[in-house]
Computed example of a mutant assay.
Amino acid sequence: MNELNNKNPFKTPEGYFDTLSDSLKDRLSEVEKGLPGKDGFVVPDHYFDGLQGSIQQKLEAESKKVIPFHSYRKYYYVAASVAAVILLAFVLNRNTSQKVTFEDIANSDIENYFNDSELDFSPYEIAEVIPIDELEIGDMLTENLNEDSILNYIDYHTENAEELNMEYDE
């Protein structure tokens, strides 16, 4: 910082500040000579005495009818809401005309319902509901049984296959 102060390129002439105040006074006296001697605006005599009364008379006399710009906005809102309600009523009524029947439900959905939900039905309770006359073995099984798979099952799950009184074709 000191280096900057020592190398200041600006210099003032000698005795400049001694004569500064005199030069400012001379310039101000020249400016005052150019100004007009009297004011350009004049207020009439007793103007402020009757000002309040004249303003009050003008305010009372100028009661004009005002036309609002947005007077119909509330009617637009009402019309839009009525149209929305009518449209919603048509959409909801159109979708309720189709009723879902038991035949519309896919068999896989029914099976998934019974598999996923724990209904705690015993096999005897289910057998009471299902008619046996119309029931076939193929309705209960997903795979077709052949004779070999039945014999393999019996051999594996029974200890004494001879107790079943089966005749083997060996």
Rank of each mutant, 00 (worst) to 15 (best):
N5E: 05
N6V: 10
K7N: 11
N8T: 01
P9D: 00
P9L: 07
F10E: 00
F10Y: 15
F17R: 01
F17E: 02
D18L: 07
T19S: 12
S21I: 06
S23V: 13
L24I: 11
S29W: 06
K33H: 02
L35V: 04
P36I: 00
G37L: 09
G40W: 05
G40N: 11
G40Y: 10
F41H: 05
F41L: 14
V42C: 01
V43D: 08
Q56T: 11
Q56C: 06
Q57P: 00
Q57F: 08
A61G: 05
A61E: 13
K64Y: 03
I67T: 15
H70N: 15
H70K: 14
Y76D: 15
Y76V: 14
Y77V: 08
S81Y: 05
A84V: 05
L87M: 15
F90M: 10
V91Y: 10
L92P: 00
L92S: 06
N95P: 01
N95F: 09
N95V: 11
S97H: 09
Q98I: 04
K99G: 07
F102M: 14
D104P: 00
I105G: 01
A106G: 08
A106L: 11
N107Y: 04
I110M: 10
E111W: 03
E111G: 02
F114Y: 06
N115C: 02
E118M: 02
F121H: 09
F121Q: 05
F121T: 01
P123M: 13
E125R: 01
D133C: 06
D133T: 15
E134T: 15
E136K: 14
I137Y: 13
G138Q: 07
D139Q: 12
T142R: 13
T142L: 10
L145H: 05
L145Y: 04
E147Q: 14
I154E: 11
I154K: 03
Y156K: 13
H157N: 15
E162W: 04
E162G: 07
L164E: 03
L164S: 03
M166W: 05
D169A: 10
E170T: 08
E170V: 03
